[in-house]
């Protein structure tokens, strides 16, 4: 296990008598896509604003990339890129002028700016938008432009607060391809969303309710803990001895005539291997895997926390 790139302990924020964030402890691995989920008003944005140094917590410690954010918020600024719910492009000036503006604040100009922006512009499909003013761009494009600006100074971490809210499905699709590419390039991504299918695009999920952490796991671990698990309908005939191997790999089987239904709380690398081996090369396409939807998992999680809440 490497040293976490984001480490918060006992993070608390009170506004008057209202506790928005309550003793939250978080650890994010470098290079991970970390989903930070929760219902409306659960304290997500407040937490992000504390992690990036825009808000001083009432109590707790925060280290981002080894820097104490509470004591020295300015030192972390070169290392993080942030995109809020409102895409922070200046209206009235073109996208290109926005780029020059933000790059200028990070001290990037001349050849360095051309090189970086040239690469980002192609990767984010922004070529046609360069001369446009943000207010005349469709939401999806504006969102991508905002993300492009947040990555221009090549930060080690990206904080994205509901980056895909109100964006159409095609733009969301492209957006997540970009996010996954960023993570593959070693960048840590901390992201919130209400499109719960997007939780599956992430490596780790933290779920908060009423300012408290109620779950912190991989998507598959959440499936195992908070759903009825996978259901696999196998149509193709199985190789000899396959059922025994599947049972050893943790699958439970039920027969219904010729049809076979397998169940498993979660699917990991060994269980996939077992499944492939059991089916054999000829029948590799002869199955249907029903995956528990993240929507249902989170509905359960929220309902459970509401029941146990004081």
């Amino acid at each position: 296990m490497s040293e976490p790139i984001i480490a918060a302990t006992g993070l608390t924020k009170r506004f008057g008598t209202f506790t928005a964030v309550d003793a939250l402890t978080l650890a994010v691995e470098p290079g991970a896509i970390f989903a930070f989920l929760g219902a409306n008003g659960s304290g997500k944005s407040t937490t992000i604003r504390m992690l990036i140094g825009l808000l001083v917590p009432t109590a707790g410690t925060i280290r981002v990339d080894g820097i104490d954010v509470i004591a020295t918020p300015r030192r972390v600024r070169d290392r993080i890129g942030y995109m809020g719910q409102k895409v922070s492009l200046y209206q009235g000036i073109t996208l290109r002028e926005n780029v020059e503006f933000y790059a200028g604040l990070y001290g990037i100009d001349g050849a360095a700016l051309e090189r970086r922006w040239g690469a980002v512009r192609e990767r984010f499909a922004l070529r046609d938008a360069e001369g446009e003013r943000p207010e005349s761009l469709p939401a999806g494009l504006r969102q991508r432009a905002g993300l492009a600006l947040a990555t221009l100074h090549e930060p080690r971490l990206l904080f994205l607060d509901e980056p895909t809210a109100g964006v159409d499905v095609a733009s969301r699709d492209l957006f997540w391809q970009i996010i996954q590419d960023e993570a593959d390039a070693g960048r840590t991504v901390f992201v919130t969303t209400h499109f719960l299918e997007e939780a599956d695009y992430c490596d780790q999920i933290s779920f908060i309710a009423d300012g408290r952490l109620v779950a912190n796991a991989t998507p598959e671990e959440l499936r195992a803990a908070h759903s009825d698990g996978y259901r696999i309908d196998v149509e193709a005939p199985l190789a000899a001895g396959a059922l025994a191997r599947l049972a050893a790999a943790g699958f439970s089987a039920t027969h219904n005539g010729d049809a076979l239904t397998l169940r498993r709380p979660q699917i990991d690398a060994p269980s996939l291997d077992a499944l492939a081996a059991a089916l054999g090369p000829a029948a590799i396409g002869g199955l249907r895997i029903e995956q528990p939807a993240m929507n249902d998992i989170f509905t359960r999680l929220i309902e459970r926390t509401q029941v146990t809440a004081p």
Binding site: G38, A39, N40, G166, H194, N295, T299, I302
Partner: peptide, 13 residues
């Protein structure tokens, strides 16, 4: 018009 944009799954339900 987009009355569920930015709304969590339980509220949407």
């Amino acid at each position: 018009d987009e009355c569920t944009a930015g709304v969590d799954v339980v509220a949407r339900a």
